[in-house]
């Protein structure tokens, strides 16, 4: 995978909640929908489990974008874990600028288990967006690591 300019393939980490978004991703696969292959999925039980430090760690390890996906508001399997995810992601977005990371590299989406099509659309669209933004270059990445 080329990291420079043309032919750049963004690396995206997706934290998907077990009940809605992960099932939605599964459905997209089962239904043989086309989507960009750039998303690397990590399953969590709830989007509320996503510790902001995971997101920062992902950027540090070379991800060009991070997707956090959970159930639609009101549909959370754990009542309101997605609301907590929303709070954390919004706060983290403010901090990302201080790290020199474009806040558009972090994305929060509500994808239900029935929305395979939406999952495919989101992952493709996010990939295109990141392709336009170009690779994430962190200053002194080596030292931070």
């Amino acid at each position: 995978m080329s990291r420079n300019g043309r032919g750049f393939e963004p690396r995206i980490v997706g934290f998907l909640c077990n009940w809605c978004s992960y099932s939605g991703a599964d459905l997209a696969g089962v239904s043989r929908m086309k989507s960009a292959p750039n998303l690397r999925i990590i399953r969590v039980m709830c989007s509320g489990r996503v510790d902001p430090s995971f997101i920062l760690r992902a950027f540090q390890l070379g991800a060009d974008g991070v997707l956090v996906a959970g159930c639609h508001p009101g549909d959370c399997h754990y009542q309101e874990g997605n609301a907590k995810a929303l709070r954390r992601v919004l706060l983290l977005k403010r901090m990302l600028r201080d790290f020199g990371i474009d806040e558009h590299r972090l994305r929060l989406e509500w994808i239900s288990a029935a929305e395979g099509e939406r999952f495919a659309a989101v992952s493709t669209e996010f990939t295109e967006q990141l392709r336009a933004l170009g690779p994430l270059v962190l200053a002194r990445r080596a030292e931070v690591a």
């Binding site: 980490v13 990590i42 969590v44 039980m45 509320g48 992902a58």
Partner: peptide, 27 residues
């Protein structure tokens, strides 16, 4: 659900099956 695990400021809360170490290793 693990919401408490994500929020614990001292890392004292562990979520079996989805510990910080496991998720970081996955990352």
């Amino acid at each position: 659900c693990g919401t408490c695990v994500a929020a614990c400021p001292s890392g004292a809360m562990t979520g079996y099956g989805f510990t910080d170490r496991q998720i970081n290793a996955e990352l």
